[in-house]
């Protein structure tokens, strides 16, 4: 049975890049644990010889030809961006390069 700790919730929130308040964390912990313990219903199913099913249909080899299509123009590409200089998307300084 799962024991979802507050630390687990914090770790997952950080992986998912979600800033949560202390209250949120406590609430989420409870609700997530509810769902997780329900989901453990699956433990009773024997799946030892079962292939996982990632797609709802079993198609393979779906390809496109290597033929160019029109791109968007620069203004369209940037139109929905929160911050640009007209040419680039802008983001706060990325610090992890020396």
């Amino acid at each position: 049975m799962s024991e979802l700790t507050v630390d687990d919730v914090k770790k997952v929130a950080s992986l998912a890049r979600l800033k949560l308040s202390g209250d949120d964390i406590a609430r989420y912990q409870k609700k997530l644990e509810n769902v997780l313990s329900y989901v453990h219903l699956l433990d009773e199913v024997d799946t030892s010889d079962v292939e996982p099913m990632a797609h709802a249909i079993e198609a393979v080899n779906v390809f496109r030809q290597d033929e160019p299509r029109d791109s968007l123009d620069q203004a369209q590409a940037l139109a929905n961006a929160p911050q640009t200089d007209g040419k680039y998307f802008l983001v706060p300084a990325i610090l992890d390069e020396a």
Binding site: D85, L90, V91, A93, I94, L95
Partner: peptide, 12 residues
């Protein structure tokens, strides 16, 4: 990245 060292925005 902004090379000036003033921590300006990065371009993408």
């Amino acid at each position: 990245h902004d090379e000036s060292g003033r921590g300006g925005d990065s371009q993408v």
